[in-house]
């Protein structure tokens, strides 16, 4: 079931909470407590906006067990507007052609399921940025 494993990541999974380096001001996601840029201690919490753009994407046809019911699905590397890359699924794509550089925003969705009696794990996915109608 691994309940605690997913529970302890809830702030980053549900709210995209990462860290900012107090020394070089690099924004860090996923949080890792040591700045990947300058190597110093970085534990200051930082709230990411959830906006970014597609850096790369791919359509998964062969899924592992916990993702079989979602197959096929599209995974992507998202360049968050604050700097870091994050791995996530794209959702609500519809028929729109995907491109590197497409603007996206974070939403909370079901990530995986471990069978009828298993856990449902929720967390971030990204969808095409909704624009207000003019």
């Amino acid at each position: 079931m691994e309940v605690s494993r997913h529970w302890r990541l809830k702030k980053q999974r549900y709210a995209l909470e990462g860290e900012v380096c107090p020394h070089c001001h690099a924004k860090i996601f996923p949080p890792r407590d040591v700045c990947p840029d300058c190597g110093l201690d970085a534990r200051t919490l930082y709230q990411f906006s959830g906006r970014g753009e597609v850096y790369s994407f791919a359509k998964v046809q062969d899924a592992p067990e916990a993702h079989s019911e979602q197959s096929p699905y599209t995974v992507a590397l998202i360049r968050l507007e604050e700097g870091p890359l994050v791995t996530a699924q794209l959702t609500d794509i519809g028929d729109q052609p995907l491109e590197v550089g497409s603007p996206v925003e974070m939403v909370t969705r079901k990530l995986r399921s471990d069978g009828e009696r298993g856990m449902l794990v929720y967390g971030y996915k990204f969808r095409p940025l909704l624009r207000p109608s003019i």
């Binding site: 990541l9 996923p30 592992p64 916990a66 995974v75 794990v121």
Partner: peptide, 29 residues
């Protein structure tokens, strides 16, 4: 899918595999 699940353990379990990433998905990206 069982073999794919095993192969996916070579990725970051908390930040890649949980999103449905497999080695083939990494290579495709």
């Amino acid at each position: 899918p069982a073999v794919l699940s095993a192969l996916a353990t070579t990725t970051d379990a908390d930040h890649e595999a949980v999103h449905g990433i497999t080695p083939a998905a990494q290579a495709a990206l």
